[in-house]
Amino acid sequence: MAPAGGTRTRADWPARLAGGARWLFLTAYLAVVVFPMCWVFYTSAKTTQQIYKSPFGLPKVITAPSRANAEPLVRNYRKAWTGSHFGQYFVNSLIVVSVSLVGVVLLGSMAAYVLARFEFRGRNAAYFLFLCGLLIPMQLVLIPLFFQFSDMGEGLTRLLAPAARAMGLGNLTVSLHDSHAGLILIYIAFSLAFTVFTLTSFFRTLPGELREAAMIDGAGEYRIFFSVMMPLGKPGIVTIAIFNFLGLWNEYLFGLVFLSSDRLKTLPLGLASISMQAQYKSDFGLLFAALVISMAPTILVYIILQEKLTRGITVGALKG
């Protein structure tokens, strides 16, 4: 049943007019949201000259599909993927984000499970520390972390170099700057606060009897966690993993500060650097193709998992 405005007994034309106006507005906004994205997708199949000549028209490959008309599309994507290294950026994003995701989901659910299910001294203090992280903007951490990384690299080198020499690996220098490992550590650590906070409240809602039953069956705490609690927690864990995926895949500022070599860059860094360099500014075929390569993965994830994602926002908001 409609919660409001559902009864229309008489011919109340002001209400109907308002309904029409609302429909018009919603549809117009729908066009404003959807059209630019469609525009990016289909324009990436045109040559720069075609874009100049008819900026909004559909590409030939759609109006008259043929192998020859598909050539601009192939050329744009090849230029972006190999010529401008978007293939490399894509792989880099995939590595950094997937390793970070595994790390943050594993460590986050371990901490959350213990905080939600066990009584021990210091529990509230530990929970409070994670809670603080929700208020710490990355900007506060960025600069000290940048300089801390140099010290940590030196410390690790001093610690590990003798062992490496002993094992015949030659001179080893560890650096967290300009490395995927360094960025991954930051991403995991920085995503922990939100992950632990959300999963703690999730693990609290799981029934406690299951743990006791598993215990009577002789399962140890580790077994209980990995084969009872993790599977039970899957809905919460999946939701938090989607959120972290979107956040990390799109992250820019940490990457900008901590990665400088071109071969290590993630997609947002690669996209930002071609959009800021004068030499690419009018190579529209390339820009549109690069934009599609960067946007497609998160759009795909959203299309597949949108129910889970929106439900996640719902749960988070009503609990928080």
Partner: peptide, 28 residues
């Protein structure tokens, strides 16, 4: 045994979080 379990589960995430978030935040 339970204390050991708590320490192994809470220790690594807390350490990582302290070194890469809390410490730099205080240093700022």
């Amino acid at each position: 045994g339970q204390n050991l379990f708590i320490a192994t589960f809470l220790g690594p995430p807390l350490l990582l979080y302290a070194v890469f978030v809390l410490m730099p935040a205080v240093n700022a």
